[in-house]
């Protein structure tokens, strides 16, 4: 029983971070219908700037720089590349982000060289034991931060001008434009937010508690696991992203123990495949209708 509880704790802790990543996918998708394959490289980029600036700015300052630079990179990608390819459709733009992902990832990995810097100085590897269950401090902080950010996001989404504009745009782009909503601003903000979420997520990922390794190509692989999280929740559902993240975390933890560890990585993708076969738009996604 203790084993089971511990696994659930492990799974939820990681799921919180997957939710942050998945939310990033969803925000961009809702605003632009583009699936951002470069999300993993945003994560790496933010982490890399933390590594570079940590010496001079200290951990807190460097973390802020990392979050900000991931956000700005995302913004730059949108403004300088995607916005200029207006003629291309969403699928082509998704392919473009694959190309970007390759470039940014290879360059960051090259710059990291052989070092595997850990980013979780403040709380890493200092677990708390409660009644036979170990709580990893990184997971706890990640859960708290995710809860705050996700709540803030939901509130902004519902009540702020940006949220209203974005929902309008997601409903019907042309009508939104007619209502005077500036599509470019909504889109740019969405990328900015997604980049910032990636920058936050990396602070938890590149830790002993979460990934067991510092910033590296592996960090990018982990970001890849947020894909099934976003997809199985439904790419256009923010609530789905949160649920999807937690499902992926739990599926990974439980299948590692009760099926086999080497199956666990495939397990999250298979869960996604099953969900998609039953509900082609994910658990909470909007059903598609065909237009003739």
């Amino acid at each position: 029983m203790n084993t089971f509880l511990q696994l659930v704790v492990n799974g939820l802790g990681k799921g919180a971070v997957f939710a942050l990543l998945a939310l990033g996918f969803v925000v961009i998708f809702k605003a632009t219908e583009v699936v951002n394959f470069a999300h993993g490289s945003l994560v790496l980029f933010g982490g890399y700037l933390v590594v570079v600036t940590r010496e001079s700015l200290g951990w807190v300052g460097a973390s802020l720089v990392g979050i900000l630079s991931a956000a700005l990179l995302a913004l730059a990608v949108e403004r300088l590349l995607l916005a200029r390819a207006r003629s291309a459709d969403a699928n082509s733009l998704a392919l473009l982000t694959i190309g970007l992902d390759v470039i940014i990832t290879e360059e960051v990995v090259r710059r990291l060289g052989v070092t595997l810097p850990f980013l979780g100085e403040a709380w890493d590897a200092q677990p708390i034991q409660i009644g036979g269950i170990t709580l990893f401090r990184t997971h706890l902080v990640a859960l708290a931060v995710s809860a705050v950010l996700i709540t803030a996001f939901f509130l902004a989404f519902r009540y702020s001008d940006w949220g209203v504009a974005m929902r309008a745009q997601a409903e019907n782009r042309e009508a939104a434009a007619l209502m005077g909503i500036r599509s470019s601003r909504v889109t740019a903000t969405a990328w900015l937010v997604a980049g910032a979420l990636a920058g936050v997520a990396v602070l938890f990922i590149a830790t002993q508690d979460f990934s067991g390794a510092g910033l590296s190509r592996g960090t990018h692989s982990i970001a890849l696991a947020a894909f099934p999280a976003a997809i199985l929740g439904g790419l256009d559902s923010t609530a789905g992203a949160v649920v999807g993240g937690l499902v992926v975390g739990l599926a990974e933890a439980l299948s590692a123990q009760y099926i086999s560890f080497d199956f666990s990585k495939s397990a999250v993708f298979l869960v996604m495949l099953v969900v998609l076969a039953l509900r082609p738009s994910g658990l909470f996604g909007t059903r598609e209708s065909t237009r003739v």
Binding site: L7, G212, A213, E252, Q257
Partner: peptide, 17 residues
Amino acid sequence: KITSTDTDLTNIVTGLK
């Protein structure tokens, strides 16, 4: 059994415990 790119072995050690 793990692969060379796995780095978080928390769940495994939990099971072994």
